[in-house]
């Protein structure tokens, strides 16, 4: 430790300009000859510069916080309008004419919802009538996972996914959710696990959590079960029970209802009918 301490002290004195001219020349020569010492000097110099910046940052943060606290006192933060979530990919996919038509339909739906909501809890009724935690394709997914042979490089992963999905087939959504959460720690990008985790969240009434997971999948054209993700995203939006999200749900439902050979065409059409 003594040797380290002496070296560190010398470096500090060098960087602080506290060495005599002779001592400095000798130390500079040492730096040239000793790569470890050169590295130590460079590292400490960078650290010093960063520590200086840290002090400056604290000073600026104090100033900024004073501005923020003044704005807080004026009610700036509480008076901000709620941010709107825009599903851009879907809007971009639809033509202007379709968008206008949808906007008109949705406008009418919102008016209808406004009148129906206090009386019948239309969101609740619609959601409970249509939400099935077992997607159409679950058996297909499980069959595919069953069929994977030992030669498959991802065998371990597929087995783990199958084990996590099995409780779904038995209606144990909470258990399935936990198993999928664990699976996702190791395989965070697995789209199927993300979709089923979202559905388990929705089954446990966590619609905001489901939206976060489903939105990217619903917009991903390469995801093989994209329609299913869109359907459950629409249901999640509906479950949020506010006009902005209801509008988004209706946009998605209209999109699914318009797909003539779509897996969720019939459900989407019937749900739209119920909402209107």
């Amino acid at each position: 430790m003594d040797q380290n301490q002496n070296m560190s002290d010398a470096v500090d004195r060098f960087l602080h300009g506290k060495m005599s001219p002779q001592e400095r020349v000798a130390f500079e020569q040492k730096i040239k000859e000793d790569p470890d010492l050169a590295a130590e000097v460079e590292e400490t110099s960078i650290l010093l510069e960063s520590i200086l910046y840290a002090k400056e940052k604290d000073r600026l943060l104090d100033k900024i916080r004073r501005v923020e606290s003044e704005l807080e006192g004026e009610g700036f933060f509480t008076n901000l309008p709620a941010a709107t979530i825009k599903p851009k990919t879907f809007w971009q996919q639809l033509s202007t004419v379709n968008t206008m038509a949808i906007a008109a339909v949705v406008g009418l739906l919102l008016v209808a919802l406004y009148f129906f909501r206090p009386v019948s809890g239309i969101h609740d009724v619609a959601f409970n009538s249509f939400f099935q935690p077992v997607p159409h394709e679950l058996s297909m997914v499980l069959d595919r996972l069953d069929g994977i042979g030992f030669a498959t490089p991802d065998k371990l992963r597929e087995d783990a996914l199958k084990q996590a999905l099995l409780p779904f087939a038995d209606g144990k959504y909470q258990a399935a959710g936990k198993a999928l959460e664990t699976f996702l720690v190791t395989y965070p990008n697995d789209p199927i696990a993300r979709e089923y985790r979202a559905i388990s969240l929705l089954a446990q009434d966590d619609a905001p959590g489901a939206v976060v997971l489903l939105k990217p999948l619903a917009e991903d054209n390469s995801f093989v079960y994209q329609e299913s993700a869109q359907w459950y995203l629409a249901l999640s939006y509906l479950r949020l029970e506010d006009p902005a999200h209801t509008l988004q749900a209706c946009t998605l439902l209209k999109y699914l209802a318009g797909k003539t050979s779509g897996d969720y065409q019939q459900e989407a059409t019937r749900l739209l009918q119920m909402l209107s």
């Binding site: 600026l60 100033k63 003044e70 704005l71 700036f76 309008p81 941010a83 709107t84 979530i85």
Partner: peptide
């Protein structure tokens, strides 16, 4: 020069955009 009023105006103009982005 870290003018207090200018910093406040910067907040008023930019913060809603940042909030929108983070929430999305």
């Amino acid at each position: 020069s870290e003018d207090h009023e200018m910093l406040k105006e910067f907040y008023v103009v930019m913060y809603p955009k940042v909030l929108d982005f983070i929430l999305q």
